[in-house]
């Protein structure tokens, strides 16, 4: 009896940490590809063909990263520009729409909601083809603006749904108080609703940026002439051109993962919230 209870007590203390150990094993397995990317990015070109491959960079080199600095800086700038443009466009469309759907009893709100849902399910290839046909006429191929618009189609439906969900939980008194002070709908929105919806603004911005930054389909179809090369295409061209330089490819991949890393470290709660909000993406 005593033995049992004492074992149980020590078991209680030990069990959480055994789960932690198991969790560490799972996480390590899951993150192995990311580790491998880092490992290869630091490997010397001569060692890339080593058999068996080195499990860690024995003589770490930054050659791969030097290649990134040499070749990919303009592409990183292009991606940054496209990402920021996409954030601006997404917020400009989605935030007022979210307010209208959540608070202003917009006629046809149900239909709009359904359209947004279906919009998210349309395959990227189909969108790319339709936009390609349209852009040929408009002369928007290979332009920053063209990619900003295309990438925003990934984020706008998500943004509207998130803003709608968020703004319908805002306390009525806050809006009422503004009205009492004589503020119109427009001023209420700008000076009250937007500031109170800071969390939603951040979440939508983060995802709009990340999706634009990560986009491959639109970049590879709407910017194929090589004047405008976002970082994803930079990696793709690398793979196509110099298959021996995998350290440079992986170094570019590491650099391209920086926004994801920043999100993971600095904005983790927004990320998990974004995934669950309406179960999108």
């Amino acid at each position: 009896m005593t033995r049992l209870s004492s074992r149980r007590r020590s078991g209680l203390r030990w069990r959480p940490w055994s789960k932690t150990a198991l969790g560490l094993v799972f996480t390590a397995a899951m993150l192995f590809p990311a580790y491998w990317m880092l490992n290869v990015s630091l490997t010397e070109t001569a060692d890339l063909r080593a058999s068996p491959p080195h499990w860690y960079p024995k003589e770490p080199t930054l050659d791969g990263y030097a290649a990134v600095l040499g070749d990919q800086l303009p592409n990183l700038a292009a991606s940054l520009l496209i990402g920021l443009g996409c954030v601006a466009l997404t917020l400009a469309v989605a935030a007022p729409a979210g307010y209208a759907l959540a608070r202003l009893r917009t006629p046809g709100a149900g239909v709009i909601g359904f359209l947004l849902l279906v919009a998210q399910m349309i395959p990227g290839v189909v969108m790319a083809m339709g936009l390609y046909a349209a852009y040929v006429r408009l002369g928007w191929l290979n332009t920053v603006w063209g990619l900003v618009v295309a990438d925003s189609t990934i984020a706008v439906p998500f943004g509207v749904m998130l803003f709608t969900a968020f703004m319908s939980t805002l306390p009525e008194e806050v809006l009422q108080a503004a009205k009492v002070d004589g503020a119109g709908v427009g001023r209420t929105f700008v000076s009250i609703v937007l500031p109170v919806s800071r969390n939603a603004v951040i979440t939508v911005s983060l995802f709009a940026f990340l999706w634009a930054w990560s986009d491959f389909i639109f970049a590879s179809t709407l910017a194929r002439n090589g004047d405008l090369v976002p970082i994803t295409l930079g990696i793709y061209d690398y793979i196509g051109n110099n298959t021996t330089q995998w350290n440079a490819i992986m170094a570019t991949a590491v650099v391209a993962s920086v926004p994801a890393g920043v999100l993971l470290v600095a904005a983790q709660r927004y990320v998990a919230g974004g995934v669950t909000a309406g179960a999108v993406k």
Binding site: T20, G23, F26, M37, F216, A260, A272
Partner: peptide
């Protein structure tokens, strides 16, 4: 079941989903 480090590990599990597709695919 909550255990030490559980939130951190759960966050790290998001990595594949956040990485650009081209990064994961080429890796």
């Amino acid at each position: 079941g909550s255990f030490p480090l559980s939130p951190v590990l759960r966050a790290l599990f998001l990595t594949p989903w956040l990485l650009p597709m081209i990064v994961s695919a080429s890796t």
